[in-house]
Each structure stands twice: as structure tokens, then as C-alpha cells.
């Protein structure tokens, strides 16, 4: 038995029905803890972004000042556990640490100390570009599989808006791919050691430097189904040698799901296995209180990266929508 996370309810349900949970509750909890991961990465000698820990609002102010003293103009505050932008605050300016501290909710300290990290961006610390690759994992009792490398499409404040595979730049930089896989393996073994089993991801920052080099940092682990889990599995099933792009789209005029699929079909965009080799696969519809679809996730399956981007452009033209940006 498995869930988005393994909690007390799932554990009790499994016990009552004579089943076992895939992951232990402790594994699910510890595997999602950003602070515990950071401490492990440091101890394992993997590169980490400049980080301070803060247990109280007073310590948070001090941590922000230390990050500023290290030469950062911006930073990010992360609670021990969080997801989808909850438990994460981007600090655009580190000039007034006390003002920032007043804005951070108390629940950021609920799971113990939070992390305060420097924000790497082009123009400082020799950085020319920051990318966001991710390694998709499946952990069983006796094996760890890294089954896909994806690129996350993130908002300015690092909220997931889509993803694609394979990151096109990795074809030309095999050494970056090898380093991503090496660090993903180290992080995944830590995750396995926490007792977590199931799907997950290791998210990275790949920081390109002005001198042509690059630094690779493990950013976080998602010990759960991620935004890339279903797209990766579906793409492997339907078009294993192809490229795929998943994008969240928001509908300016909400509409019934049936009408949405009919629009895709009428325009010729809809993916129909056996009839079309490529196309748009609707993965998820989010309905509002009115029962209509307000936003959705759409998987563009094509033979090449350029092809998947063209499919997305066509879908955006054929549907009454815009990219869902945070």
C-alpha cells in the first residue's frame, strides 16, 4: 500500500487489512526532510550551496546577515519539510533581514531548524546560467533505479510548472550527465537508508560558470510521486526513444473536460496510440468548485525536443489557455 506520503492513517489501514505499506512512515518523513538531507550531503563531501541553519526567528535574522556577508544579494528560506512552494520563501533582497524575519510564518520552524541558502543567479559568484535537472528514482528493498533525467520548468520562486526529458544540453556535456548520475546515486542511497521505498526524485542545481565549467548541487529530494513521475512513465511506455514535454496550462475560460478533449481531437493535437506517433496526452485535469476544468497538465510526446515544443505551441493556440505561471 502506497500513498502520496506514508502517514499514520495509511499505516493503520495497512495493518487493518493485513497489507504492508511500501515505505515506512519514518522513511517517508525523513526522506522528505531538506535539513537532514543537507547535513548528509555535507558529511558525504558533496558540494552544497552556502547554507545557514536557523531554529528561531532571532537565528533566522542572523543567518540572513551571514548569507549576505558571503556575497549573496538574494536568498531562500526553506522549512525542514515542504512541497509545491509551501515552506519556501524566496528573499529577493537581503538588505533588511529583520523585515524578512517578521514575514516568515512560525510554521517554518515546526519541523526544527529551517535552511537559509544563498540564491545563485547569473551575474554573481561567476555564474552564467542556472539549470534545474532532476533524476527520477524508484527504490525497492533490494535495488535503486534511476530511470529518467528530466529538466524542471520552474517559476521565479522555484515552483514546479512543468518538466521535459531528456535535458537537451546533456547530449553535448556527457561529464555533466555523469556527475548528475553520480550524485543522484549517493543521494538515493541515503534515501534508501532512511527506509523510504517507492518513487521519488533528486532535484539539482546545475550552475554554469563564466569560465565554461559547471557546479552540480543536490538541491532536494522528493520522496513521493513527483510532477515528473507519471510523464516519465507514460513517455517510456508510449514513445521510449522520443522526447517529451509536460506543461501546466490554465484556462482563461474554464470548460468541461469533455469539451477540452474534443478540442484537442478536432485540432488533430490529441495523442492516439496506434493512429498517431506523436501528440498531446492530457495527464491531469484540475476542476474548480463549478465542476469545470480550470487547469491541466499536458504531455507533449514527439520524436525530438523541438517536436515536443512545437506540439505545446500548437496546443496553446488550439486551446483557450495560457501557461500556468506562479
Amino acid at each position: 500500500m502506497d500513498g502520496y506520503v506514508t502517514d499514520d492513517t495509511l499505516t493503520r489501514l495497512a495493518r487493518r487489512t493485513g497489507l504492508q505499506t511500501l515505505s515506512s512512515k519514518a522513511g517517508s518523513f525523513l526522506g522528505n526532510n531538506k535539513r537532514e538531507l543537507h547535513l548528509f550531503l555535507e558529511s558525504a563531501g558533496l558540494p552544497v550551496v552556502a547554507t545557514e541553519l536557523a531554529t528561531t526567528p532571532e537565528e533566522l535574522g542572523q543567518a540572513l546577515r551571514q548569507i549576505k556577508a558571503a556575497g549573496f544579494r538574494s536568498g531562500v528560506i526553506k522549512s525542514g519539510i515542504g512541497a509545491s512552494g509551501i515552506g519556501l520563501v524566496k528573499v529577493e533582497s537581503l538588505e533588511d533581514a529583520d523585515a524578512v524575519t517578521r514575514e516568515v510564518p512560525d510554521h517554518f520552524f515546526f519541523e526544527g531548524s529551517c535552511l537559509v541558502q544563498g540564491w545563485l543567479s547569473p551575474g554573481s559568484h561567476g555564474v552564467s546560467r542556472v539549470r534545474s535537472p532532476s533524476a527520477q528514482l524508484f527504490l525497492s528493498d533490494d535495488s535503486i533505479m534511476i530511470y529518467d533525467l528530466t529538466e524542471q520548468i520552474l517559476s521565479q520562486s522555484s515552483v514546479h510548472e512543468g518538466n521535459e526529458s531528456t535535458p537537451p544540453y546533456l547530449a553535448e556535456r556527457r561529464e555533466w550527465r555523469e556527475e548528475l548520475l553520480r550524485q543522484a546515486g549517493v543521494a538515493a542511497r541515503w534515501l534508501h537508508g532512511q527506509g523510504y521505498r517507492g518513487t521519488g526524485s533528486v532535484d539539482f542545481l546545475l550552475v554554469e560558470l563564466e569560465d565554461g565549467g559547471a557546479d552540480v548541487y543536490v538541491c532536494e529530494i522528493n520522496a513521493r510521486i513527483t510532477g515528473a513521475t507519471y510523464p516519465s512513465v507514460l513517455a517510456r511506455h508510449f514513445l521510449p526513444e522520443g522526447s517529451r514535454l509536460l506543461r501546466n496550462l490554465r484556462f482563461e475560460t474554464p470548460l468541461p473536460g469533455e469539451d477540452l478533449i474534443a478540442l484537442l481531437e478536432k485540432s488533430g493535437d490529441l495523442f492516439r496510440p496506434g493512429e498517431s506517433e506523436t501528440g498531446v496526452f492530457p495527464v491531469n485535469f484540475s476542476a474548480g468548485a463549478d465542476g469545470l476544468v480550470h487547469k491541466g497538465q499536458f504531455l507533449c510526446l514527439a520524436h525530438s525536443t523541438a517536436g515536443s515544443h512545437v506540439l505545446l505551441e500548437m496546443a496553446e493556440l488550439d486551446l483557450p489557455c495560457s501557461p500556468d505561471r506562479h
Binding site: P256, G257, E258, L260, I261, P282, N284, F285, A287, V293
Partner: peptide, 10 residues
Amino acid sequence: SEPDESLCRY
């Protein structure tokens, strides 16, 4: 919550 019926049919 209930999944979208048309999506399940797809």
C-alpha cells in the same frame, strides 16, 4: 475527489 470522467475514458 471524483476524477474527470472524460479523462478516464481517454
